Computed example of a mutant assay.
Amino acid sequence: MHAIVRQGNGKYYISAVFGYYRDITATDDYEKYLQKIYNQYWIVWDAEMKRLIRWNTFTQNTKEIILQILIIDSNQDNWNKNDDGVGCVDFLSKEMLDSFLDKNDQPEEILEKCRQMDAGYIYEEVQEIKEQKDIENLEWASGGFHDARIAKEELLQDGTLYLRFDGTWGCEIEVWFSGDLEYDTSSRNPDDYDPYWYGSTIILKDGFVYFVDDTDMSVEQITEEYCYFKARHMKYRIIPD
């Protein structure tokens, strides 16, 4: 698993992700609800990749919900986690992490295992949707395009359709469709309809990629009532806020 770690004001870095936890101590239902939101954090490298740190999912001590981390590679094959997705890579544990995370000097043998796990990973800003794991990665990074809207739509001279989405939590997203292109965005025309998406579905079928502005869709369900795209190729780029 890898993520864009947002530092604010457009600054960010790329890190492997080694764990995810939520510290829930409240007994009151509403306080539990708040802690589930604000007391969740990820275990990542610091900006210099010298030590492991806790990184909160959302900015603390604010009434706004500001996402601070964007998962760009969702692979958790080497994780031990519970049904809520809480856990870490198989050579760590919460007890082990709690024993050294707040220290400047951390166990070198653990840091070396983390470096080995991270070795060889290269972040490519522009990704293409080719298989199911690519769909999953974009869903993680975009939050399923919840609250997104098409801020820019342009048909380029080579026939490629360019879109820029804003409203997605923590980022904007550029998308390109090319090859036997078919699309209809009229149902999200801001002059007539609500431009903001609740969710999305991406489908790979018969050599095409389909992208539509609703959840749990099938190709057969897509009609002109939806904002949808169909093409041979779909590429995207995440632009952290």
Score class of each variant (00 low, 15 high):
158 D>Q: 07
180 D>N: 14
19 G>L: 12
145 F>R: 00
11 K>G: 01
56 N>W: 09
103 K>M: 09
192 D>L: 11
40 Q>R: 13
99 S>W: 01
84 D>P: 02
167 G>A: 04
188 R>H: 11
204 L>Q: 01
97 L>K: 07
231 A>G: 15
65 I>G: 04
90 D>G: 10
138 L>A: 01
3 A>T: 00
199 G>V: 08
197 W>D: 05
50 K>P: 03
37 I>W: 09
97 L>R: 06
48 E>G: 04
206 D>K: 12
40 Q>N: 10
13 Y>L: 06
32 K>C: 12
202 I>P: 01
190 P>A: 02
26 A>C: 13
214 D>I: 05
160 T>W: 01
206 D>C: 07
160 T>P: 03
34 L>A: 08
42 W>Y: 15
55 W>R: 12
224 E>D: 15
220 E>Y: 08
68 Q>L: 05
134 D>P: 09
191 D>F: 11
139 E>T: 06
5 V>A: 00
163 L>H: 04
217 M>F: 03
158 D>C: 05
194 D>Q: 06
129 I>W: 00
107 P>Y: 09
218 S>E: 11
9 N>A: 13
215 T>G: 08
213 D>P: 09
215 T>V: 15
205 K>M: 11
98 D>L: 04
172 E>G: 14
107 P>A: 11
52 L>Y: 00
221 Q>T: 08
225 E>F: 07
91 F>M: 09
133 K>F: 10
182 E>W: 04
88 C>Q: 02
154 E>Q: 14
199 G>H: 04
10 G>K: 08
129 I>Q: 00
12 Y>Q: 03
